[in-house]
Amino acid sequence: MAQDHHDDGPSDVALRVKALESLLVEKGLVDPAALDLIVDTYENRIGPRNGAKVVAKAWADPAYKARLLEDATAAIAELGFTGAQGENMVVLENTATVHNLVVCTLCSCYPWPTLGLPPTWYKSPPYRARAVRDPRGTLREFGVELPEGVEIRVWDSNAEIRYMVLPERPKGTEKLSEEALARLVTRDAMIGVGRASAP
C-alpha cells in the first residue's frame, strides 16, 4: 500500500479514525464492543471458504447447481451465507467455451458473505480500468491463458447485484467428497481471475 508515502501519513489517518471513534462512542452512536466483534467477524470468520462450499456443493449436487444458477441468493442462503453485500447474488457458470470475470469499475462491490472482503488489487484502479478494456490481457497477468475460442464475459457490479463465478470442475475429481472438492476452489476462481486447482 501507498500509505507510507502519503502526504498525510499513516499517523494522521490513524489519529483521525481514533478521534472519530472516540466521539461516536462518547455520543452513544456506536458500541465499542460491537466494533471489535465487527472486526473479528470480517477478519476471521467470513471469507472465501464460504464461497468454496457453495461451489463444491454445486459440483456435487446437480439439483443444487440448478437452484444456484436460477436464484443464487436463495441457494447460497441454504448454506447459511447471508448478509450485507450478498442480498442480490448472481452466480455465473464457467464452461469449456465461456469464461466469466467479475469487476466493479465504479467502486469495490464484492460478495462479502461468500468471499469475505475483497483483496486490495480488486479495489485498485488498474484492475477496475483494465478488466473491462482488456480482459484477456488482465487474465494473462493472473496466469490464466484462455484459448482464442473461449468467450470472455465481464460482469461489472452495480449498486445492488453481486456476482460470483462458478468455476469449471477440475478433471479427475469424480470420486472426491464435497469437502475435498471445496479445498480445490480458490478465491481467484470465484472472481474469475483463476481456475479451480487440480486435485
Binding site: 471513534e21 460491537a34 471489535d36 465487527i38 472486526v39
Partner: peptide
C-alpha cells in the same frame, strides 16, 4: 477501526 466504524 475504519471498517468497524463504517459498519457500525
Amino acid at each position: 477501526r475504519v471498517f468497524a466504524v463504517f459498519i457500525a
